[in-house]
Design a protein around this nucleic acid. Structure first.
Length: 1025
RNA sequence: GCCCAGGUGGUGUAAUGGUAGCCACGCAGGACUUAAAAUCCUGUUCCUUCGGGAGUGCGGGUUCGAGUCCCGCCCUGGGCACCA
């Protein structure tokens, strides 16, 4: 037999596989019912094709998924195992700038290099399904998804200060920072007010958080990182009156139970309270100086570690504790962040470390209102016995009037009810998650498919805004009922822009009569209702609109129905009054024709209006449906951005879907300007266009999307990569999704994995996909470090190139080594010596073939199992144990132990003179997912036809895997004293007796009688004396 | 500072509460060879008076029995960064 020549073997089989198309994904015919085979979708996080090419660290995850894919294939699954390129973004652009090639050319070249390198390793990719985020055919759908978000008010223009990287010359999302520095280049980030497109990911905070509970096959620490990142805290907003003023200072607290311990207030330097009251502040100069200093500091400086807290009192301003009516001083300090909560706090130094530190420094009063208790509920020390640290944990309330003696959770609850009852506060949930700054002032990204039209922006409309029933408004405060929700807020916003707004309080909202209310509108509107009129109706107000349109029989410009009543069936305890308000018969056929556009804005919880009614209405009116989670249920909050999002005439008009993709123009000069303008802004041919809405002159948005955009949904495209009508067919998505196994680096925990879940949940909400979580099981791949223990990098000159390893040791040895080097999810340093070790193993397997004699079987009747039992060779037991171990380990991604057990098997086979063909073939099958080329060759050498990957994965036989003899350990007082070889089916009594009979045991017992003898089946006998 | 993961031979590592160190690397000795490489065989946690003794970061505890569980420290890696 010839020597193992990996180059010949690998070349031969790669060619063979290509010819036979063995790795082409076998998609069931969806039309016919042939989809009987179970599917398995195994995915890698697709690579960024950088100019440096692959190093040996990159393929580690790909090898793992390839092994799982091959085993699943042999186990009879329809396997989807695709690969593609995440190619937009800064690194490619910077590389292009440096090397003076256009990013698109550079990317194409890098993709070719990566593909060639991956090709060497013998993966099962079906390249017909390759995706590339920079391909217009692909990013057409990235843009399409963005437009759907825009239309639902989830993408909005913002002018708020954001993170700006002066080096990369672009704005960044919170997720793009690492400890206040740019994650890409390490520059210090500036806070800069800029025009940005922002995605309202915070609308999905709750869904992203609660969804984690369903992801039982995700690593706990990744889920933890995500939930920390979302950072939910439950608490209360509390209003503190400002003394001698009608202003109130609103604070957020998670400890409403400590309200009696609030001894002063603190606001952030940016807080409007300061600018609005400058005249009243007696130490104005000191205050302004502090603000100047705070402004000049970078974010990093402001939050620097171990920094002593600073602040200035706002002298002349006092707040009133709403419970005690005590006067509280107000401070301004930069340890209070303007961007979180209300930008102001009540300071409880007795029970908060930061407040304590500040109070100590400025000698402010400290009051204890919570005391620690033991498990029985006994108070541990009294309130006068102040410790040298604030007590920040749960305990029991003291010095707190009506909540005294209550344990913290109950104290919180009682205080919350009290605050709400008295109208001085309400429950509030806060998240740390920030909205996603989604635009980049750079060239190499997806163009944002929007145009700005001044004509549309400046066009004036006449608005009618109608509410409905408000039966309980007077009884239960401002947020219940219809008389005082977002209508005044929206009215003034629209009027500010020069629109006419008719926003009446309709008559008899306590016991409404629709006909009466319609007549009221007609009589009082004060302008002509025509196709320049936009009518907004909330709840029962929608019903008024149906009748109004019927009665007027005139076409209007737009109708917006906000959580509209449709039938007399909805959730409200005073429903009977509403039921009587009309006859509930509407001619929707007619109504449908009476507005240019209908928009239904529904509460995605369907808490008041039932889903069926909403869906029916949308169908009857062919309306555009926008489901969202309003600030308060049934859109009853005082300010409601989602309603404003629908009404705002900001002049932004989406590029019509039929015109997608909006292609990135190929330009010569794509350097970032640094002014906050994208390089695209200089291409006037491209920028100047016409408005798709009014036909007038318009300008294109010139910012591009961030690198993360394309990777938010690529896994869906693999399921249906050539679809020109949809991003993925729902049928195919239903079959292939969700992803059964997703493998990638842990560094994506709070970036890609949160963004992708967000987009997926959005696609689920608009009905584009069938499942609400994209990745069923997630596994992290551990980094491969260089031989010196550092990260592989050109800078250290320690990069190992996979091409060289493949050349010298072969792809199979490289694959095997990367899986053998340690636990898959753990970082591990590369060792060339280690590659040598697995290469030796492959050579031993190769030479083992010489011993294979198909005509020689060494049958050993097991005896134990009696007549009719299976014939065993000398290898049978260990073989079946190995089949079990390897199959289980591959699924669990414990590749290192799988390989180790195969090494043991080969060592066993090496010890015997002959190996049966049956046994050898089983070994080859187990090894084949790891080392596909060599096993394919040996498979054919021992006389098999076809590919080993078309063979059926072996199953272990539990009976055959059982040892016939076992070694029992004997312990005396916990110390090992002897081992004995016994039959595996030995009884407990026999085992104990045999142990006591052992000579060594006799010697150690020295005639003493054992107190106790413990038998652990098949393991040991423990004797206690 | 807070949270999470982890500390086992010279090295990478393995061990459902049950014989610690499987499988490899390295090293030492031997076989083959004129010689070397390659390959094969043997040994390889430490101490030892060869009976044993000690040993999984350190100190305690639970248990017949702890690398594994509990408590308190130390160290390494990762995440968060004054989020009220």
């Amino acid at each position: 037999m010839s020597k193992y020549n990996h180059k010949e073997v690998e070349k031969k089989w790669k060619k063979n596989w290509e010819k036979s198309e063995i790795y082409k994904t076998k998609e069931p015919s969806f039309a016919k019912a042939t989809a009987g085979k179970a599917k398995y979708y195994v995915l890698d996080m697709f690579p960024y094709p950088s100019g440096a090419g692959l190093h040996v660290g990159h393929p580690k995850g790909y090898i793992a998924t390839d092994i799982v894919a091959r085993m699943k294939m042999m186990q009879g699954f329809n396997v989807l195992h695709p690969m593609g390129w995440d190619a937009f973004g800064l690194p490619a652009e910077n590389y292009a700038l440096k090397n003076k090639v256009h990013p698109s050319d550079g990317t194409a070249k890098n993709v070719a290099t990566f593909k060639k390198q991956l090709g060497l390793l013998g993966f099962t990719y079906d390249w017909d399904r390759e995706v590339n985020t920079t391909d217009p055919k692909y990013y057409k759908w990235t843009q399409w998804i963005f437009l759907q978000m825009f239309k639902k008010g989830l993408a909005f223009e913002s002018f708020a200060p954001i993170n700006w990287c002066p080096d990369c010359k672009t704005g960044l999302a919170n997720e793009d920072l690492e400890g206040g520095l740019c994650e890409r280049c390490g520059s210090e980030i500036e806070r800069k007010p800029m025009r940005q497109w922002v995605l309202r990911i915070t609308d999905y905070a709750e869904k992203l958080l609660s969804g984690l509970d369903t992801l039982t096959a995700w690593p706990e620490h990744i889920k933890k990182m995500q939930s920390d990142w979302i950072g939910k805290s439950e608490g209360a907003l509390v209003d503190f009156k400002i003394k001698d003023s009608d202003q109130t200072l609103k604070v957020f607290t998670t400890r409403p139970d400590t309200l009696f311990g609030a001894t002063y207030m603190v606001v952030a330097p940016e807080h409007p309270l300061i600018s609005e009251n400058l005249d009243k502040i007696s130490n104005k100069k000191a205050v302004q100086e502090y603000i100047e200093v705070a402004k000049s500091k970078s974010d990093l400086e402001r939050t620097e570690l171990q920094k002593e807290k600073t602040g200035v009192e706002l002298k002349g301003l006092k707040a009133i504790n709403p419970l005690t009516n005590e006067e509280l001083s107000i401070f301004m300090a930069d340890y209070v962040l303007f961007g979180y909560g209300t930008g102001a706090i009540m300071s409880v130094p007795g029970h908060d470390e930061r407040d304590w530190e500040f109070a100590k420094k400025y000698k402010l009063p400290i009051v204890d209102v919570v005391l620690p208790v033991n498990e029985k509920g006994d108070v541990l020390f009294d309130a006068n016995n102040l410790s040298d640290k604030p007590f920040t944990e749960d305990g029991v309330a003291v010095n707190s009037d009506f909540i005294n003696n209550l344990p913290t959770p109950q104290a919180k609850e009682k205080m919350l009810s009290y605050l709400e009852e008295k109208g001085i506060g309400q429950r509030k949930i806060q998240y740390k998650l920030r909205d996603w700054v989604f635009s980049r002032q750079r060239y190499w990204g997806e163009p944002i498919p929007l145009v700005h039209c001044e004509q549309c922006q400046n066009k004036k409309y006449n608005y009618i805004i109608l509410h409905g029933f408000s039966g309980t408004a007077d009884k239960n405060g401002p947020n219940r009922g219809e008389s005082n929700n977002w209508r005044p807020w929206i009215k003034s916003k629209l009027e500010d822009k020069g629109n006419k707004v008719f926003c009446p309080n309709l008559p008899n909202t306590f016991e409404p009569n629709i006909e009466e209310q319609v007549q009221y509108v007609i009589d009082n509107v004060g302008f002509e209702i025509n196709d320049g009129t936009i009518i907004v109706g909330h709840s029962l107000g929608a019903v008024v609109i149906y009748r109004l349109l019927e009665k007027l029989n005139k076409k209007v410009g737009k109708v917006v129905l906000v959580d509209p009543v449709v039938t007399d069936n909805f959730v409200d305890h005073e429903r009977p009054k509403v039921t009587k308000s009309c006859n509930w018969k509407f001619n929707f056929e007619k109504i449908k024709k009476l507005s240019k556009e209908f928009i239904v804005l529904g509460d995605s919880d369907f808490g008041v209006i039932f889903e069926k009614d909403i869906k029916d209405l949308v169908e009857n009116l062919t309306a555009k449906l926008i489901l969202s989670k309003p600030s308060a249920g049934h859109f009853t909050a005082e300010q409601e951005p989602s309603v404003w999002g629908v009404l705002d005439q900001n002049g932004w008009v989406p590029v019509p879907e039929k015109d997608l993709p909006l292609e990135l123009p190929k330009v010569k000069n794509y350097e970032p300007s640094g002014t906050g303008e994208s390089p695209l802004a200089t291409i006037s041919d491209w920028v100047n266009t016409s408005c798709p809405q009014c036909g007038g002159p318009a300008k294109r948005e010139t910012n591009t999307m961030p690198q993360w955009a394309g990777s938010c949904w690529y896994y869906l495209r693999y399921e249906d990569p050539h679809n020109t009508k949809e991003l993925v067919s729902k049928e195919k998505e239903k079959y292939w999704s969700p992803i059964d196994l997703y493998v990638g680096g842990a560094e994506h925990a709070t970036r890609h994995l949160i963004y992708a879940r967000f987009w997926h949940k959005f696609l689920f909400d608009i009905g584009m996909v069938n499942y609400d979580e994209p990745f069923t099981r997630l596994q992290n791949v551990g980094l491969i470090l260089a031989e010196d223990g550092r990260k592989m990098s050109k800078r250290w000159n320690n990069v190992i190139n996979p091409d060289d390893v493949v050349e010298e040791y072969g792809a199979d040895a490289m694959r095997l080594y990367e899986m053998f080097m340690g636990p898959f999810d753990q970082p591990c340093a590369w060792s060339t010596k280690g590659v040598v070790g697995v290469r030796r193993f492959l050579e031993r397997a190769w030479t083992l073939a010489e011993k294979v004699k198909s005509d020689i079987v060494i049958p050993v009747k097991t005896g134990i199992h009696g007549v009719g039992s299976p014939i065993k060779s000398g290898m049978t037991t260990v073989l079946h144990q190995t089949i079990k171990k390897v199959s289980e380990d591959i699924l669990a991604l414990h590749f290192n132990t799988a390989i180790s057990s195969m090494m043991e098997l080969v060592n066993e086979m090496n010890k015997v003179p002959n190996v049966s063909k049956e046994d050898f073939v089983l070994l080859l099958q187990l090894l084949s997912p790891f080392a596909p080329h060599i096993t394919e060759e040996l498979w054919s050498q021992v006389g098999n036809k076809g590919s080993i990957f078309e063979s059926v994965w072996p199953q272990h036989n539990a009976e055959l895997a059982k040892d016939t003899e076992i070694t029992l350990a004997i312990q005396i007082n916990g110390k090992l004293r002897d081992t004995i070889l016994v039959s595996a089916d030995i009884s407990e009594e026999e085992a104990k007796q045999a142990s006591l009979n052992s000579e060594k045991v006799q010697k150690w017992l020295e005639g003493k009688t054992p107190k106790k003898v413990i038998y652990v089946k098949n393991k040991l006998v423990s004797i206690v004396v």
